[in-house]
Design a protein around this nucleic acid. Structure first.
Length: 585
RNA sequence: GGGGUCAUGGUGUAGCCUGGUUUAACACGCUGCCCUGUCAAGGCAGAGACCGCGGGUUCAAAUCCCGUUGACCCCGCCA
């Protein structure tokens, strides 16, 4: 390779040197005499000057068009006074071409590199090879690479071993739908693509690997969203003999290393808040902690209130919760409040009570139903200042938290509240182990069926399973659930007891989770770990809303790839080999 | 499975509500010519879409109606 430098790296320190550059014609400006080309590669672009005195180069260069692939040999020169372009990083210099060469031409493009905005996503995906030439995508993809390298080196330094687990594995029809792969050798049987390497990594702990990590691909055949793809990458780790503290320290260290790798900072250790508390204060298990605006309890105040709705709810064991938005009484018009009411109704509320505190008095639809004592208590309890808007909701605790959480999010959005910091990380801990499913008279893992119960609560498995706390945790940053993990069950009997509560018979459990259960009873050490959404991490750090922007070749919302036009119809012969007959609707 | 928004030259949009003087407009891109300092270069000339697809209403449909396909966002779902 003759290339001496990347375009973006040609700076003033190279003035006077001879360079051999390769790249794409980003912009072509023919002035009749002198001819300018912005030569671009993934690092940036540099201005090439082709003088008419250089007859051979000039006549060849006149044929160049946008996105032609060329090479340029020339001398780096300082731009003359007045011709410096401060808007570009290579604006102090230009390369005076001695010779140029055409390596490839280019057809008319569906969109221009960098200058066209708002291109339909479908078009971008169909021509992803062009889309990836854009500065934004180059930046995202290289940032993703930097993060991946950082993760690898971080875990390596901390004694973790990278191990690849199988992509062709066993279907465990639970949770998300599996992607199935038919077996030719075993007609009528199927592999499944893994939804997570969970069982393999726990098995590795039983093997004495002690510390494992992997940038693992995981597959789920469910409907997609902006932050969900059929295949995604997770940073998957597992540690033996580790406490929650150990796991949190490793997770925080990884986040710090990732941020530092892209010249950002994040403070450690992360705050830890119990699930119950987080839900009560923010109405969500993944709150955006960059904003205050906590949900406050006003149940006491309205017990026995003249306002029947509240009084009855409290009498029936319900709660009253409040959100107080400062200096916003005038922002919330009737129309806006009606929209908020609709929103909470969509989230299960029966209604929404609002008050405004203006000129030292409360006004609002229901203000007249409240006694002076109630209002003054409310004012003290939740510290209401002039100009505040207060929203009150009532229901049973969980339901109330849930719609107040949705309301909190919307208020933050409407008021354009300023985030108090760039990153607000949080460990949500003490998730309940189980949830009850009344229709099926059984329990279901609240998060992960392999999570261990808190040691003191094991006895409760027999008496009151819903009270059992777990060693399950989430890592949440800026309202995004980034990672999820736990200390696992390392004893077969405990694991089987939990599976039994989920109404898995011993036989069924053995069939589905046999590999893991067998490994547990063969001297598995205590262990735990987490899986962290790598695409979400990259999107977060790149400031992107959608993970499609940090995945080189993503799929559409219908799990379709416009670039490869997959999934696709296969040959009759292929189906025959697999003993598959299609019965299409 | 449900809801919302959208579909017009290569790309992004306007036109649609209030059907007909629209030869479907504008910007960028593309083609040709001119120009020795531009950098989102400039000037002049030109090519390019029958309006996602199917059906209907009408003398007449990009425009109204029905259906369908696809995209994006959301709910369900995602242990």
């Amino acid at each position: 390779m003759k290339r001496t430098n990347y375009c973006g790296d040609i700076k003033a320190d190279l003035i006077g040197t001879k360079q051999y550059l390769c790249g794409w014609v980003h912009s072509y400006r023919d002035h009749g005499g002198v001819l300018f080309i912005d030569l671009r590669d993934r690092t940036g672009f540099v201005q090439i000057v082709i003088e008419p005195s250089n007859k051979e180069a000039f006549s060849l260069a006149q044929q160049f068009r946008q996105e032609y692939v060329i090479t340029v040999e020339g001398i780096v020169s300082a731009r003359k006074e007045g011709y410096v372009n401060k808007n570009i990083s290579t604006g102090e210099i230009e390369v005076i071409a001695a010779s140029v060469e055409l390596l490839n031409t280019c057809v008319q493009l569906p969109f221009e590199i960098d200058t066209d905005k708002n291109i339909a996503e479908e078009t971008r995906l169909k021509y992803r090879y062009l889309d990836l030439r854009n500065t934004r995508m180059v930046r995202n993809i290289t940032t993703r690479h930097r993060l991946a390298q950082t993760v690898r080196s971080y875990f390596d330094k901390n004694g973790f071993i990278e191990i690849e687990t199988p992509i062709l594995t066993r279907s465990t029809p639970e949770g998300a739908r599996d992607y199935l792969v038919p077996s030719r050798v075993h007609n009528g049987k199927f592999y499944a693509l893994p939804q997570s390497p969970q069982m393999f990594k726990q098995t590795l702990m039983a093997s004495g690997i002690d510390r494992y990590f992997q940038l693992a691909r995981a597959f789920r055949d469910e409907d997609l969203r902006a932050d969900r793809q059929p295949e995604h990458t997770q940073v998957d780790i597992e540690m033996s003999f580790a406490s929650l503290d150990d796991i949190f320290t490793i997770g925080e260290g990884m986040m710090k290393a990732c941020m530092n790798a892209v010249n950002m900072e994040i403070e450690t250790p992360f705050e830890r808040i119990a699930y119950d508390e987080v839900f009560k204060r923010f109405g969500s298990d993944k709150p955006d902690m960059r904003y205050g605006l906590e949900i406050l309890d006003a149940t006491e105040i309205f017990a026995g209130s003249g306002f029947k709705v509240f009084a009855d709810a409290v009498a029936n064991g319900g709660v009253v919760r409040a959100l107080c938005a400062e200096n916003s009484a005038d922002t919330f018009s009737r129309a806006t409040i009606d929209k908020l009411t609709e929103l909470v109704k969509l989230n299960g509320a029966k209604g929404l009570v609002w008050l405004k505190f203006k000129n030292g008095k409360f006004e609002g639809s229901c203000a007249k139903f409240f006694s002076e004592t109630e209002l003054s208590k409310l004012r003290q309890t939740i510290d209401i200042a002039e100009g505040a808007a207060i929203f009150l909701g009532t229901d049973m605790e969980t339901a109330c938290s849930s719609f107040m959480g949705a309301l909190r999010k919307e208020i933050i959005r409407i008021l354009h509240l300023k985030p108090s910091k760039k990153w607000a990380p949080l460990w949500v801990i003490n998730f309940p182990l189980l949830e009850y499913i009344p229709e099926e008279n059984r329990y279901e893992a609240a998060h992960n069926p392999f999570t261990a119960p808190v040691a003191q609560d094991i006895a409760l498995l027999d008496t009151d399973p819903l009270k059992v706390r777990s060693y399950q945790f989430d890592m949440v940053i800026n309202g995004i659930e980034l990672a999820s993990g736990s200390i696992r069950n390392h004893r077969r009997d405990v694991q089987e007891k939990i599976l039994a509560l989920m109404k898995h018979s011993k036989e069924e459990a053995a069939r589905r989770f046999g590999m893991l259960l067998n490994a547990l009873e063969a001297g598995a050490p205590p262990h735990g770990g987490f899986g962290l959404g790598f695409d979400r991490l990259a999107a977060l750090i790149c400031g992107e809303e959608s993970i499609k922007e940090v995945i080189a070749f993503p799929k559409t919302t219908a799990a379709y790839c416009p670039l490869t036009e997959s999934p696709n119809i296969v040959d009759e012969i292929q189906l025959k080999e697999l003993a598959i007959k299609l019965d299409l609707k």
